[in-house]
Design a protein around this nucleic acid. Sequence first.
DNA 1: GTAAATTCTTGATTTTTATCAAGAGCAACT
DNA 2: AGTTGCTCTTGATAAAAATCAAGAATTTAC
Lengths: 190, 190
Amino acid sequence: MTELELSIKSYFGVIDPEEVSSIASLFQPELLKKGDYFLKTNKNCDRLSFVQSGFLRIFLETEDKDVTQWISTKGYFVTDLSGFIFDQPARWTIQALTDVEIYTIRKSEYEKMKTTIPRWSELEKLFIVHCFTTLEDRIFSHLSMTAEERYHFFFENNKELFNQVPLQYIASMLGMRPETFSRIRKKQLS
Amino acid sequence: MTELELSIKSYFGVIDPEEVSSIASLFQPELLKKGDYFLKTNKNCDRLSFVQSGFLRIFLETEDKDVTQWISTKGYFVTDLSGFIFDQPARWTIQALTDVEIYTIRKSEYEKMKTTIPRWSELEKLFIVHCFTTLEDRIFSHLSMTAEERYHFFFENNKELFNQVPLQYIASMLGMRPETFSRIRKKQLS
DNA sequence: GTAAATTCTTGATTTTTATCAAGAGCAACT
DNA sequence: AGTTGCTCTTGATAAAAATCAAGAATTTAC
């Protein structure tokens, strides 16, 4: 099984191998160079991609600062979900932080899965609810944890990220300033 | 059209009246007394309900404090989404803050919609993506706003809530302590 | 209607986090 | 290799928010 197939399997729960390869076959490989934009705010988002390698930053520029909403890593899917599903202008800008390999499915192909894969609607729902639950957890972390607690929690689960992308983006994603991030990090290292 | 039907219509987007009443007919009225639990953490959540009147608090008790995740009001649906969809133990406790009228559909009836309403899977997906987008906005508010900004933003969009439920719960839901909430409120009133 | 319980406010203080400013460390470019 | 940008760190200070404690206001229960 390819990594794409393994991820489809793990994202969508128990699912038979025929279905997995049938879904995987609809994704096409693409390469992004560091700095390339996968998507820009207000543009149309007609693709859903699986990250095979590299890092992508999902963010929004406000008057006074950039806000990093998330960093997508190997094994995750990346898209502007509401834009992709509702054909609305994208909420987020998505940019490659490193060279990136992705597997992409276009909206038109995506629509076909409904008919070619009988269980697709059900799998798709489970996928989206899973994403929903992840966001619920993130909100909870902002309601119940300090910056330092969020740092530690995130660090424990994403160690590999800390020496591969600019730390300022991780800081933003955790809801703190880079200086605060740096000070927490210093404490932790000693 | 009943309020339930209107809400189904607005939640699920454009949809024909036959479909609306067909969906609405599967919901049964229920009454909750103030203080009643709609759901408790780790229990099975087999219902999705539409709030006709009253307020429900969705929260979690941690060692040191209660964390209010959301307050459901008239016109909203309420459930523990991951518990309901995945048949997993509920993540949240949900309690009536006032007497509450709801319309409820049980999981078993809910499952039937897939077959009786052709477009159901599509509508359901749109519904869940809509919920997802709402949570994205909330995360963004924690990454980019101060407590005071979150207060004002929420106040502008939910004025009615401020004189109908204990303010400490709104404070928690916005990620601040009741004292901070009270001080911001004082500033605003003057 | 009154007592009890809960919720809200306020002040004083501490802790946490942001801001500002400067310099050090690193990486990228030619 | 040297210069130019970024990025990260550090210190000093300011602002924001939490904590603690007490009392006022409101709601609930009998």
